[in-house]
Nucleic acid binder design. Structure first.
Lengths: 237, 237
DNA sequence: GAGTGGTCTAGACCACTTT
DNA sequence: AAGTGGTCTAGACCACTCA
């Protein structure tokens, strides 16, 4: 038969295998037919079968080993795509009014606090910014931002009263590595006042470090009132 | 010639292109040579070049359009990999002792609470479990779990005093879609007592729904004391 | 040793989009 | 109309690993 369904052959092979896994016909650890067998089943070349299986493997659905064959991946950790967007985009995507305010700006040699954030990587001047992002005129995110001026000298002259530093940095600076820590923390006195929440209220905090090669570029601490913000991720297989 | 560096040809092509992007030689929006040109540059077949470019496109590094060519992807949102693991694996990976305890188990028709969690998808019996996961004998995660027994009848007979429901479900049940919401919430009275924290303390809460086709399988609310738990993600390009 | 996946080739035809 | 990427083939040889 080979009722030519929609799309290319490799996609049809992927769909058929995924359907068998989803329906439980092939469960965790089950061995999938070899490339040669599938070549006969789908009446196509081995390269086409190989591409389908290779993509499923790169998506974590199956695990392949020479001689041992292809098996449905045993359950372990799963990788979930978590999309991180600029704060202004995040808010306007939700259909809210967005407003940004620069609360404080200070430039000077790296003090102990900055060195702690940067993990001892900064010796020269550091720019520290404190910003508030509003959604519908309510505080949505408090952004504390440290920028390593050794790595990004042009940030010293940038005007951050209109453009949030996150947006400016994404446009201006290439980066090679990033790290992000998501946690729940009680609001300290200063944070509570700026975010207009009770002292000790639950905040969702994202701390993000960004490097260019070995040099740290920036550290951001983004705090959100727990009552108004969450991260949502979806996945399917 | 073709100074055979390490690894297969397609990987070398990917590395070379990524290096040019990282070093800023090809910046956002820059057009990359066509497959035919790269075929000559790297002295290999077009399929090999195609594979390298296709993988870079699937990783979001480049964007490809027929006739228009291949370009370095313009900056937009970023995708971050967030790894989600079973709680027992999470704790033992950190080098801590793991202990699990079933606090409560109740079976009955879906009440208003369960229908709210399931988004009105459940009509029949529901199994509700409350579990505690300890790391080094300190409460690490409070798991409140609802299982739709219409979708998973065998869960009604499973023994959850030894095996955590998350582990059991991952092994027993295929799934097709999942949704996850990460938030910061204050500890309610019952949660505070079980987790041994102050009333109103900041909790990092993960709520996860899992479906098989259209039917909801399970809803889990996983609460962690903010002081002992965080999610960490890293990425590089 | 034999069977598995991993890579690669030198062609081919098609689909799409810009000119 | 021409040039780009998208897919596919029918082979080939290699690398790994289990029996």
């Amino acid at each position: 038969m080979s009722g030519r369904q929609a799309g290319p052959t490799y996609a049809r092979i992927k769909r058929d295998i995924l359907a068998k896994i989803r329906q439980g016909e092939w469960c965790d650890g089950h061995r999938i037919p070899s490339e040669m067998e599938l070549t006969r089943t789908f009446d196509c070349s081995r390269m086409t079968v190989h591409r389908a299986l290779r993509e499923l493997a790169s998506e974590g659905v199956v695990t392949r080993r020479r001689r041992a064959g292809t098996r449905v991946t045993l359950e372990g950790g799963r990788n979930v795509l978590l999309e991180i967007a600029r704060t202004d985009k995040l808010i306007t995507d939700l259909g809210h009014d967005y407003r940004y305010e620069l609360v404080a700006r200070a430039r000077g040699p790296a003090d102990a606090e900055a060195r702690a954030k940067f993990g001892s990587g900064a010796q020269g001047d550091v720019l520290k910014l404190v910003c508030l992002h509003y959604a519908n005129e309510k505080p949505f995110q408090l952004e504390e931002r440290w920028i390593n001026l050794e790595a990004v000298p042009s940030a010293g002259d940038a005007d951050f009263t209109k453009t949030p530093p996150g947006t400016w940095l994404l446009r201006a600076i290439p980066w090679s590595d990033a790290e992000q820590i998501i946690s729940a923390q009680p609001a300290a006195a200063g944070e509570a006042k700026l975010l207009d929440v009770e002292l000790g209220a639950a905040l969702l905090v994202i701390e993000r470090r960004t490097w260019l090669d070995r040099a740290i570029v920036t550290f951001a601490r983004l705090s959100h009132p727990g009552s108004v913000y969450h991260l949502k991720t979806t996945l399917s297989r």
